[in-house]
Write a protein that binds this DNA or RNA. Structure first.
Lengths: 151, 151
DNA sequence: TTATAAAAGCAAACTAATTGCGTTAGTTTG
DNA sequence: CAAACTAACGCAATTAGTTTGCTTTTATAA
């Protein structure tokens, strides 16, 4: 018998392998694991978040280099949280390299500092004066997330 | 005869003195100068921007401490630029302390890295699921600003 | 004018992130 | 399947931004 969780794990493993292969990256343990962590997270992760989630401990440099490689290949996008620390999230709708028009809004919790990707909240447009060339928009709400609400 | 520039300079000096006094802060040379720099800039400034603009050179620590003090008093607000470096801008519509609902949108130029405060571009609302407590919104456009447009 | 507390200035520490370099290990090719 | 190639790893050291501790200076108010 096959459990749902197993099926899901198999699927993310398969997807992760695919992402690496299609970008000409090697299939190493940590990179596979990192991709699966991103696929399983609905919010943007900091380097220390990733470190916590990894099964075995690795050098931070390795994590940084993997993140940069993923970013360069358009697999991840990065944005600083309100404290200026970088967070990374997987590009759900395969962004062309380096063009990350995050079409959805984000919510950052002031308590737990998590960045939630609100995939189904579309960013509304505004009217921009002439002369500006617009490439992307980020819409970020700040407040208290559901988990951190006082009862 | 009094020139326009002088009048303006006088006015910003006067305003700056007022801001300091009304927040119970001391009127020191560098703090006055910093406030005037912020009043004269339409975009958010990094610490090194400020250093460049100051007439006399000062210890960075002094600048950092002034910035933090201004931020705590609701005179400035801070946001990270896309590289994660902090930038500071004056709160035009006197924000209550620590609540910086930037009601206007920002534009960040990918070329010169400047953050423009688009004072008259209001941030549109979105519908947020129940359970989230919304405190503030930031709306940031990325692209090429007017100064950096290729001719 | 003197007292006092805020702000300045110097040195040192801390943290996030990057770079250099030798080693390990996926992947490709013969 | 072995050899060769090079991406990726891991350690040490460095850089950059920011903060902290402590002493000295100085704006302000008694």
């Amino acid at each position: 018998m096959i459990f749902e969780e197993d099926k899901e794990a198999m699927e993310t493993t398969f997807k992760a392998e695919n992402i690496l292969k299609s970008n000409g990256l090697r299939k190493t343990q940590i990179r596979l694991e990192m991709l699966q962590i991103f696929m399983g997270s609905k919010h943007a992760l900091s380097v220390s978040d990733i470190e916590k989630d990894l099964k075995s401990s690795h050098d931070r440099v390795t994590i940084y280099r993997a993140l940069n490689s993923f970013e360069e290949n358009g697999i991840l996008h990065q944005t600083p949280d309100p404290n200026g620390n970088m967070r990374y999230a997987i590009c759900s709708d395969s962004c062309p390299e380096h063009v990350h028009q995050d079409k959805h809004a984000h919510f950052i919790c002031e308590q737990c500092n998590q960045t939630y990707c609100l995939e189904d909240v579309k960013i509304p447009d505004v009217v921009l004066e002439n002369g500006y060339q617009l490439n992307s928009i980020s819409y970020t709400m700040n407040g208290i997330c559901r988990e951190c609400q006082p009862a």
